[in-house]
Amino acid sequence: MYFVGIDVGLYSVKSVLVDEERILLSRGVVSEEEGSKAAYRVFQEILKEGNIPEDEIASIVSTGMGRKEVAFANEKRTDQVCIARGAYYLFPSARTVLDTGAGGCRAMKLGDHGKLIDFSSNSKCAGGTGSFLEAAARVLQLDVEGIDSLALKAGSVSRVSSYCAVFAESEIISNIHRGFSKESICAGICESIAQRMHDVLRRVRIEKEVVLCGGVATNGTVVKMFEAELDFPVLVPKDPLMVGALGAAIIARDLIR
């Protein structure tokens, strides 16, 4: 028997296929199609790749912002529940999980057996989210990876003190005008994001181990600075973008059991 989790996010659709024992496949596409179409396409692709007939899929759970558009899913679950489940599956020692994607930043607290017991999200402001990182990159005429690689070389940090993303952008511009090095400005941007992430995580009371997932987890400098904020290392999955879809797949499996 096979189980599928589908995560329909802001810009991309991710899917994970599991059987009763292990993770078999994962697949993600960046798509401008509407969520239902993209979800179906990804689902078909993963079946094809795994060479599995559709009727052997015992259950499908969808998650993410567009979860309700996935008409062929048996059940729908919120991101918080799926990410918590996925993170716990990957790291049974996880007690706190932070997910930072384009749309926002949220923290989840796990209780016994990985049960979700509390969660928090960033305020409406984009500070501390992937969107802020993208906006900052535009100001510096870099791509998101460029910020990471420049920040890595920084000898100092030009601090961005404002927590409002709009103000922070103007602060970055004035740091440029002041003649601070691009490296230190990039480090400042990463530090600002790491701090906002810490703020969201703290709202659920941090307990070790901490799992970090979502797009921002691929930025090495942010991760490093986030660890410095916490004062201990965090666990980052190999594929931090797939945790929600994985959680959905595990929940799909639990449904049948």
Partner: peptide, 9 residues
């Protein structure tokens, strides 16, 4: 709380 302040503005 200087996080609320925008010097440029």
């Amino acid at each position: 709380d200087e996080r609320t302040y925008s010097e440029a503005q």
